[in-house]
Design a protein around this nucleic acid. Structure first.
Lengths: 384, 384
DNA sequence: CTTTAGCACTCTTCGTGTTAGAGTGCTAAT
DNA sequence: ATTAGCACTCTAACACGAAGAGTGCTAAAG
């Protein structure tokens, strides 16, 4: 199994060709097809020997004797870590994405949803987008707006210009003015704190001077507290589930059902994506290291782009997605990494295309969110 | 084809038995199975004759000679209009639904989303819920809340206690006070009008006295106008798409893909559901009319429940859903019919179960939304 | 006139066997 | 180290036949 030897250049290019071809055709690829399509200057027999070796090394698999080879998880892993070359996104695609995301400048969730949607459209796979977590954000404002007796809208403004609100019940006898005062007191006491640091206790102490009997006050404070805390709620946007049904790996309805069932539990997926942050990226395969030939060595994708996280097949720790691959990256709100956006599809995924698309979407989203945050800085300066 | 004769009681009960059985098993049902399962006191041969007749009348179909019979669209239609008996929802299911919807009292969209979700869970099909249209609602309040220089939150409060908001860009140099004044002027001028009646012109004239240069004002007014208008945006919530993959009619991936593709175009579906309001319910089949026997005649479901709309197979004017059935009903916000909620699934759908579930969800939603509107009336009285 | 038993007929489904083709691994020659 | 040649293996596709389910028709019975 181990005993890793360096793969020579020819093995690498054969491996790459096999993966490329299998991605394109979904058919096991044989030695003869390889030589003719990829212009190797050797005979099929030579390729066969090499492929046999790649198989014993664990990079390829055979569905059965006398079928072609198919990449294993390890094969895909080597491919994405060291062999892939990612072209830049064609201008027309880039323009389309930019245009589509253009008009949702002001609202964060709208932008994330659209990002998810466009990503699914342009890759042809299923896209996932996790709303940013905000626990490190600072509370900037909290307002309470009387809607009618007994109901109010709590508006929470966070650093980086993120706005969340929530409709709540309040005691019937409170009037708009009292409500505003309470909100002002809370804002006075808490603004600048991170969501993480705000607790029911800090909320209560911020508002201790409010001119209200405690029982009434408590209900309002509780609702304010909940509104603040739910500003950090993770939301998962999934788009383009239907796309996967086009691929032969999902022609078996059992597989498809399994996949859809898993995606339907969006809490689990959201949790999984969220925890990815903390994980070390899986380490690459030393056998693929660039053995310093004078050969034009392409810098491996992995080293250029440490912020991309790719999970292949069994690497995905979610039941029902073991036949899939998962490519994600992070986006920032202001300057901090906040959310995650990505694509899920068959293991035989067009990684290059997916990465260039995600990469561009990520970049565009970051720019938009940076712009939001800039308005934010202006505000902070004025306050000084 | 036509020449409709009245169906005698035996034909009716055979038709009902065929539909019931096919719904339960998804297998074409034969004469022998019918007599043994449903205890007809006649021989299979008699049943065969009757079924042959039902086939020439168009209620049944044969997938091929020497298979059992399967209901046609017309057969299902007769079934749901005249033959079905809808039992009340078992208490445990009712409790589950009630509990699930309990905690989303304050927020309209949250309630609708949950209603959709619970409907899909409890029926085992895909659910659809259309957010209420609000064009007949009256504007009650409009507030503009300064978020930071250049950005504001527009909050629109409609009659029946519905609250919508929208983040907008405004000129950088406006301050919070000016903004409040503009909002107050708009509210003063427009409150009580229906969304339908509000136009850019009425907004502008409501705010004509605001103390601001026109160019600045116009941008704000436009954003206010958009915020008001988008309070009427239709949103469609779809839940439980994965459920349908369990049914044999979707074991053909082509069918499934077609279905999912259509559902992915949610604008089209939303439009279709929205237009259902205006359509006359399809008229029933006179041949099924209750021929006044002294037989214990069940009142046909259709007459008891005119507010349910059932579309079967070809009756659905949406490409890709012709193998499905669609059961929907309306819910009210306050006292006016406002939105539509329903279920889509195979034609061979457990109509009875679906109807009792939808019926209960509708009722629960209506109660919640009535409660919202009641707070509303209180407010109006105080204003007098 | 309605119901029913009997029977021939049809059509699907399922298992089996056969064949063609693709692709391999091995061996021996280059 | 490479390659031509060849035997071998496995799948996919097709045909064939038997089994089974269900029908329609006919003629007899109620």
């Amino acid at each position: 199994m181990s005993e890793e030897k360096l793969l020579d250049e020819r093995k690498k290019s054969i491996l790459k060709a096999v993966v490329d071809d299998y991605i394109a055709t979904a058919e096991p690829v044989g030695s003869k097809a390889l030589v003719s399509k990829y212009h190797f200057n050797v005979s099929p027999a030579t390729i066969r020997n090499e492929m046999a070796e790649l198989e014993t090394l664990g990079y390829l698999e055979q569905p059965h004797t006398s079928a072609g080879r198919v990449p294993s998880d390890k094969g895909y892993r080597a491919y994405v870590d060291n062999l892939i070359q990612v072209e830049e996104l064609p201008d027309e695609d880039a323009d389309r994405i930019r245009d589509y995301l253009q008009d949702s400048l002001t609202e964060l969730t709208g932008l994330i949803r659209k990002a998810s949607s466009v990503l699914s459209d342009s890759t042809g796979y299923t896209s996932l987008a996790l709303s940013p977590h905000m626990r490190r954000s600072h509370l900037q404002q909290i307002k309470m707006l009387m809607i009618e007796p007994g109901r109010a809208l709590v508006v929470v403004v966070l650093s980086a210009g993120v706005v969340k609100d929530r409709l709540v019940r309040i005691p019937d006898i409170l009037d708009a003015n009292q409500l505003m005062q309470i909100a002002a007191a809370i804002e006075e006491g808490l603004s600048g704190m991170t969501l993480d640091d705000i607790t029911m206790v800090t909320v209560a102490s911020a508002a201790r001077n409010a001119p209200l009997p405690e029982s009434l006050l408590n209900q309002v404070l509780y609702e304010a507290y909940v509104a603040i805390k739910q500003a950090d709620n993770l939301e998962l946007y999934i788009d383009g589930q239907h796309q996967l049904l086009s691929y032969p790996e999902f022609h078996d309805v059992g597989k498809a059902r399994c996949f859809f069932n898993t995606l339907a539990r969006d809490g689990i997926i959201a949790g999984y994506m969220n925890e990815m942050k903390e994980q070390e990226p899986l380490q690459g395969d030393p056998a693929l290291a660039n053995n310093d030939h004078n050969r034009t060595a392409i810098t491996p994708f992995k080293e250029q782009n440490p912020s991309y996280m790719i999970r292949i097949g069994q690497e995905i720790a979610l039941d029902g997605l073991q036949d899939c691959s998962f490519v994600t990256t992070t986006y920032k709100v202001g300057d901090v990494i906040a959310g995650r956006i990505g694509v899920i599809g068959p293991r035989r995924m067009a990684y290059g295309k997916v990465i260039s698309n995600i990469s561009f979407v990520k970049q565009t989203v970051n720019e938009h969110l940076k712009r939001l945050a800039r308005g934010d800085e202006i505000l902070e300066e004025r306050q000084k």
